[in-house]
Write a protein that binds this DNA or RNA. Structure first.
Lengths: 193, 193
DNA sequence: CAAAAGCGTTGATAAATATCAACGCTTTTT
DNA sequence: AAAAAGCGTTGATATTTATCAACGCTTTTG
């Protein structure tokens, strides 16, 4: 049940996990199933949970004053779903997170996460890497958005994340890239030539 | 000499620093002065240093194939200058970091930083907060870039970071926002009405 | 002090992207 | 099985933003 998560942690830690440590982790993470379209987090709520995706696909998005959705994150297996801003700052979230496919999660409270970081060094290492890695990915994406045309951004994304292209419909990819679905459709049409 | 840095750490740690800990930190950070336009990091080099800005202003930017600069970060007092991607992944940097004003830094090697994280718990807490905070800021910026028009992005930025508006010329702010200097000039003209 | 570089602005025009509306096809719901 | 919703596409048009060129003013440099 918790194998994927334990493997994930072991791969990112410098020393192996003791049995006690494994037990602490297993105790903190509860399995949860979400059907397609069910919310993991809704706008206005403080994000109190962190979810590790064992199987499935999710998305994080905001809804602007015109009711338009803007996808800010796409998640698949071995990704962590949560609104870090809300969880860290304890402020109401500006985002929704919901299941795009039926999804199997391992969920811990933010409080339990902090506890694990303190008690299990490997877990602390893992979350530190996670934080750094998240920032790097976000920086890259930002840099790409600032520097490149929509076309180049799509190509870059498709090259680096083919799994997402297969897994999510085009209009979500478009939103994630910050362009309209029509523009993405036209970009793809050109690219084929 | 190291007061600003020590204060910065103390504000972010849950327990006070011991004398020994302070000594370790002071030993790791060396003062360095950069004159305006001097490089702290050049493209192609692995980022081996992290700089805490005591006084001054710096910027991080990439140069695209057409020779156009794209500002990705602006730094002032109490900011950390470094290319985290390069430092963490040990890959050649895609960025330049240089001094915009004459700048007074406290510089540590990435290796010494790792050492301090291990030996000084408060320092570890501080860097963890730094990582989280960086990600949050980056996420917000990305979300703003994806969701808003240039005008709204500028307003948001000007509201949240008036210090930067005063400190850096408009063409750098424009580049940071991912728009041209002409467009920013026109946006500001409109805004006055 | 003269020359050069840096900076912000403006105008004219071009390019990129969004918007709106409609259609066909597939999948889901009733 | 019929109706509805979801998805991608296309066309026509509007809007946003970039590009190119030029100018005046200020600051820096030789």
């Amino acid at each position: 049940m918790h194998e994927n998560l334990l493997d994930y942690i072991k791969q990112r830690a410098t020393s192996p996990l003791t049995n006690d440590e494994e037990a602490l982790i297993v105790a903190a993470f509860h399995p949860k199933k979400l059907r397609k379209k069910q919310y993991f987090l809704e706008e206005g709520n403080v994000c109190k949970y962190v979810g590790f995706i064992v199987k499935g696909a999710m998305r994080q998005y905001s809804v602007d004053d015109k009711g338009v959705e803007h996808v800010v994150q796409l998640y698949i297996e071995n990704y962590w779903a949560s609104d870090r801003e809300s969880a860290v700052m304890l402020t109401p979230s500006k985002y929704y997170i919901d299941a795009w496919e039926d999804t199997h999660l391992l969920v811990a409270t933010v409080a339990d996460m902090l506890d694990l970081i303190e008690k299990v060094p490997s877990f602390g290492q893992m979350t530190r890497l996670m934080d750094q890695r998240s920032f790097i990915v976000s920086q890259r994406r930002l840099n790409s958005t600032i520097s490149n045309t929509a076309e180049k951004r799509y190509e870059e994304f498709a090259d680096n994340h083919p799994q997402f292209i297969q897994r999510f419909p085009q209009h979500l990819i478009a939103s994630f890239l910050g362009i309209t679905k029509e523009t993405l459709s036209r970009i793809r049409k050109q690219a084929i030539k």
